[in-house]
């Protein structure tokens, strides 16, 4: 019989601009499992962490939005590859976070991996499906293309720590946006682990930034930030979401409202989330000789 070995625990950190800082505030909060056991001390992100994350997302915008769609697709597919390789870890974490059965947790992780694959394939098809050549009544060539909205703040769903998170983040990335994600406050560990996957999956620094901490403190900061172009309030509870939506009017943010409790994230996602944070640009040019 070997000696019992003490497990090495991972410190839970934020993910900003490709780095893994602790919260600028130096604070943390306790994360427990569904069964009530201590899991970790998660970083308690501050207003300044929100600011830093937005700066990182804005800085990453030009490169990510102008990367070829083929390149973006490969990067997202790479995330699926790495996630598959760490499947066991995520099953374990989802189980601990949500109290799911092993079978249910495995199904969720599999669905999350497949969702990355689904959206990876969309990156170079979005413009073909959402764009158009428009037959105007005159001597003009006129076409429309979907372009990314820019920097999107995402409040991750609170009932699906991995699949729900992937379901809201991946489509927004596939469309060329960069994101600041607020993880499920009570179940942040799968999200934090996902950032470790993203960091090694060729996702450029700043494209995804993840914060952990109390939603009622951080969502208002994100919603009022004038350099955030859109808000996905998927996981925000109604009162918080309404206030965030109103606050987002400061710079006419595009708003995706909250998701009804009990939403089944395994459902076919369709294209709705892919199209939520795109801007149609229409270009005219005369046809002449």
């Amino acid at each position: 019989m070997s000696e019992p070995r003490l497990e090495v625990k991972k410190t839970s950190k934020l993910f900003i601009g490709g780095a893994f800082p602790r919260s600028e505030s130096g604070r943390s909060y306790v994360v427990s499992s569904a069964a009530g056991e201590f899991l970790c001390n998660a970083a308690w992100a501050s207003r300044k962490d929100v600011r830093d994350a937005v700066v990182a997302a804005r800085g990453a915008q030009p490169r990510w939005s102008t990367a070829t769609a083929y390149n973006r697709g490969q990067v997202l597919y790479r995330v699926a590859e790495l996630l598959e390789a760490r499947r066991g870890q995520f099953v374990h974490e989802v189980r601990a976070a949500e109290g799911a059965t092993a079978r249910s947790a495995a199904a969720q992780v599999d669905a999350a991996i497949d969702r990355w694959v689904w959206y990876a394939g969309w990156s170079d098809k979005l413009a073909q499906v959402a764009g158009s050549s428009n037959p105007v009544a005159g001597p003009y060539f006129n076409f429309s293309v979907p372009e990314p909205t820019g920097v999107i703040g995402i409040v991750a769903p609170t009932d699906s720590a991995l699949l729900g998170l992937v379901s809201v983040v991946a489509p927004v990335l596939a469309a060329g946006n960069t994101v600041v994600v607020l993880a499920d406050e009570q179940r942040p560990i799968p999200a934090v682990s996902l950032t470790e996957v993203l960091a090694t999956a060729d996702v450029p620094a700043g494209v995804v930034n993840l914060l952990t901490g109390p939603a009622d403190e951080l969502v208002p900061v994100l919603a009022a930030h004038r350099d955030v172009d859109g808000l996905d309030l998927a996981g925000a509870e109604p009162v918080l979401a309404a206030a965030a939506e109103a606050s987002g009017a400061t710079n006419i943010k595009r708003i995706s409202r909250g998701v009804a409790p009990g939403h089944d994230w395994r459902r076919d996602p369709g294209t709705a989330r892919l199209l939520r944070f795109v801007e149609t640009k229409t270009v005219w040019h005369p046809i002449g000789s």
Binding site: N134, V136, N142, W284
Partner: peptide
Amino acid sequence: RFDPASPFGGFKE
């Protein structure tokens, strides 16, 4: 130039 077949609308604010 404007045309019913041509989408119109803004970015940003």
